[in-house]
Design a protein around this nucleic acid. Structure first.
Lengths: 153, 153
DNA sequence: TAAAATGGTTTGAATTTCAAAGTTTTGTTG
DNA sequence: CAACAAAACTTTGAAATTCAAACCATTTTA
């Protein structure tokens, strides 16, 4: 095992093991202290300026609709989301972010922005292209592995 | 916001949001189907060929000792770990991996190996160096942010 | 040697999650 | 068009994970 390989291995493992934890820690100092990391992910998935139905958001998050219902109940109580029924099809539940929800969305996206600015601040444009293609490799590797599994679900 | 920046942002966010989930899915096809992602992390933290005490492992995982006790109880029942008391200091509990535990450790580390081999297979040495330095930037950014928080714990 | 500190375990409660059962609305079919 | 099936959710009950706080031994210290 050559040295670069070992370094890369260590870096990726560390990064992937730590990332959610650290994200959560960083959350605790935020303005929105009543949000868990789970709830932030729901808010991220709903997105800004649109109404979405339960099924599609649940699919994006890869959780069951029942689980999402519970999360939305809580976010509703804390006033981060709106929930209404569609007029065209009364079965469909539409959820969207409130003003407060959109603020939380923006605040959290700053976390990512900061991370990325730090990362690229020392890279040339060529280096950035290398980084992007490497990450695309990782991503497509996972996509493929992941889809393979989902078939058998 | 220029295009490379946006691409990078999207890639990193996706990667970090998906990674644990995917890791868990990939686990389900493994030989060790009775292990949760949490338990795999405990096994990773204990490591191969050594006895460790509860405190140090809990610190590495950033969980409380009480939480680790419960995890170890389960892993003990499933025969992935050994637990004994130290002879020098009877307060100290020493945990280590059984043969089965070490097998699981190795199996899981293959997951990371595969990921990394896929990633670097298309990169030249120079490109690998760029990738490593970028990841080091991210890592040190988090380290710093993380330590800052821990002070106030 | 009594009190304090250290290293773990246990307990009770909260959160997150899922599968399965139940509800309401829409679509289909004989 | 009546009845049955399907779709979109919600509710319920149970399991897993986690923490803080109380508790129990053992060791250190004053």
């Amino acid at each position: 095992m050559n040295n670069l390989y070992g370094t890369l291995n260590e870096l990726l493992v560390k990064l992937f093991n730590d990332i959610l934890q650290i994200e959560e820690h960083s959350l605790k100092d935020d303005r929105f202290q009543d949000l868990s990391i789970t709830e932030i992910h729901v808010i991220e998935a709903i997105g800004i300026g649109q109404e979405r139905n339960m099924s599609s958001v649940a699919r994006d998050l890869d959780i069951t609709i029942g689980t999402l219902t519970i999360a939305i109940n809580n976010l509703l109580r804390k006033q981060y989301v709106n929930r209404t029924r569609s007029d065209e099809d009364r079965r469909i539940v539409l959820i969207s972010l409130t003003e407060k929800g959109e603020s939380a969305y923006r605040q959290h996206s700053q976390f990512h922005d900061e991370m990325i600015k730090t990362t690229i601040s020392k890279l040339s444009e060529d280096e950035m292209k290398v980084l992007i293609s490497a990450l695309e490799n990782i991503n497509s590797y996972f996509k493929e592995k992941y889809k393979l599994k989902r078939k058998y679900k």
